[in-house]
Amino acid sequence: MNAFRLAGDMTHLLSIILLLHKIRAMKSCAGISLRTQELYVIVFVTRYVDLSMKYYSFYNSIMKIVFLGTSISIVWYMRYHKVVKQTYNKDVDTFRHIFLILPCFVLALLINRAFTVIEVLWTFSLYLEAVAILPQLVLLQRSRNIDNLTGNYVFLLGAYRAFYLLNWIYRFFIENHQVRWIPWLSGLLQTAIYADFFYYYIKSWKNREKLKLPA
């Protein structure tokens, strides 16, 4: 495993720890999109169906279990925890899941490496992950007040994908891995979606201002 891949996984893990900290310590999920979190559960469940069938490494299995467990518990807190659920911005988190899930599923049926259940589900999870942040970005845009934890959470999620791009470049040139268009292009799209957010995040950080996205 190269340094970029590890950095990617660690920023991903850190983003989840940050969000769980906000939820468990602050008892708040203000500014967090339940839609996006539910999409992540679908992403992990459909991608990791091979967990019980194929063993890659101890690290790989543990991380998969952590991502599955944490994403499910985040959704549980936001939906059912009697204090946390009161802080959820239900009225502004209106992005419909189906508008993302359906096109991604159709695309996965049409464009995949092999027409098998596991492979189509895996491809679907890549397409869905690429766009799963959209409800969260829409929610941020509608929020007058973005707290630091939420801003940092989204920034780390974007950083995770940027590190994965570097990881693929490294693997291709240094480790002579094959060209893999489906994960590469969906990963590239996923990172590009953060470009606007990155711009305002870094700007607010440089000017020591509170993060605010233009409506």
């Binding site: 890659y56 790989n60 991380m63 480790e175 002579n176 891995h177 094959q178 994960p183």
Partner: peptide, 10 residues
């Protein structure tokens, strides 16, 4: 290179 070059990722 191996077949599962992307599948060992998360």
């Amino acid at each position: 290179a191996d077949q599962s070059s992307v599948k060992d990722e998360l």
